[in-house]
Design a protein around this nucleic acid. Structure first.
Lengths: 234, 234
DNA sequence: TGTAAACTAGACGCCATTGTCTAACACGTC
DNA sequence: GACGTGTTAGACAATGGCGTCTAGTTTACA
């Protein structure tokens, strides 16, 4: 399992390849075990076993358990941040098919940032070890989720500027968009379950319908109400 | 600290009082330590110290660490459930001052169920130990948060029936109400911070405004629809 | 005041884990 | 083939937690 041992990209000369592969293998295994057992419950021996590596190798790369833990957290955080901003860059630009495009965006957000492996892990970590490593998570909070609201509110502002949305406070609307997108999945994510594609889609659609009912251009028209309503409304 | 040692309510004859006080003191201390350190990280000695009780006393009441843990979790769960349904029973019945009343309700929900001590603890526990004690948390999920949606959707239906709201799917609306109520506090609760009363109030108000924009009768009016559509919608 | 139950403090064995150390092994380079 | 770097397996001491046991003390009630 986890065949990270297969020859990876050769970067420099020397034995870099092997070393790099080992490091990644260890990080992966450690993330897995830390996620399941927490910091206190995780044992270096188990990590070594999962990584198919001797215990001493772990101590060679990361001086002690805590160093390894911090490295794992930083690794997961940078991956998660990169994914978050990649998804953000796919936010719909123009107002055509707004409902469908926003729905697809919400699906991507949920699937790749919140319900995925890294997302679960980070939420778990922040809650359990947040008090023990305040600076570690605080910096992530500001650079990751903290910027999510800002970025999303700017994107919503752009749509509002084009007349596709009617929003008085963009920050609040951004937070509410994220909250609505998670509304149907919150219990699942809390319990660590992974939603199916159908569930993801349905949750996103429900969220966007309500979001557009509240912030859509005509307030109530297109926003997912049956056609009769739109007809009467206009 | 934590002077549970003061003579408590005397229930039966015998030594009940002392024993009962000890049990509660231990449960309180254990909840505190388990919450901070997790199951693996918590030590019986620390719990004993916090409870101002000898270690042996803990082993007398609860045979082993796991028994104590389960007892703590069940204790917190029943408290949290009781509070949840108490808050639910304060849901506004009639449509007068709907915005203010829904806001006050959202504040109560956040303050007493989600952002309070027990709420934080349970979220932490479910995430960290959920896999280890599936049945324990599954039953709570069904009897607590699971019923929250049902109850809330019934309450919303009552309001819709009275023409105060226009809702097509009550379950979805219920989940969205809760999600919106937490939208502004999610980051705080994730990081274990406790929102101030002002923050609670502002968050609730933002949530209810948007909820009513999407589901309020007034929102429908503004959108150019006569009130009688409330009836059609349900 | 006497008795029984509960509580305390501390010692104890047991076990898992951490982090170090050593000797042997694998592999690529000179 | 010699060499250096990285890896491995296992032994090792030290630590700390769990759960048991015992002897002595407190508490509640008759």
């Amino acid at each position: 399992m986890k065949d990270r041992m297969t020859p990876a990209v050769r970067i420099g000369g020397h034995t870099q390849r092997g070393q790099c592969a080992k490091r990644m293998s260890i990080l992966d295994a450690a993330a897995d075990v830390f996620c399941r057992q927490g910091f206190a419950g995780a044992s270096i021996d188990e990590i070594a076993a999962v990584a198919c590596v001797s215990r001493q190798t772990i101590y060679n790369h990361y001086r002690e358990k805590e160093t390894l833990f911090v490295a794992v957290v930083e690794d997961v955080m940078t991956r998660a941040n990169a994914m978050l901003f990649s998804v953000l860059s796919s936010f719909p630009e123009n107002a055509d098919d707004l409902e469908d495009e926003l729905t697809a965006f919400a699906v991507r957000l949920n699937k790749n940032c919140i319900c995925n492996h890294d997302g679960k892990f980070l939420r778990k970590l922040v809650q359990t070890e947040g008090e023990r490593y305040p600076h570690l998570f605080e910096s992530w909070r500001q650079q990751g989720p903290g910027k999510l609201t800002n970025a999303l509110s700017a994107l919503l502002a752009r749509l509002a500027h084009k007349g596709a949305l009617v929003i008085d406070d963009f920050d609040i609307a951004a937070r509410q968009f994220v909250a609505l997108a998670n509304a149907d999945l919150q219990m699942m994510t809390l319990f660590g379950e992974t939603p199916s594609d159908e569930e993801l889609d349905k949750a996103a659609r429900n969220a966007v319908r309500t979001f557009l009912k509240a912030y859509g251009r005509l307030g109530a028209d297109i926003a997912g109400r049956p056609p009769e309503f739109a007809a009467i409304a206009s």
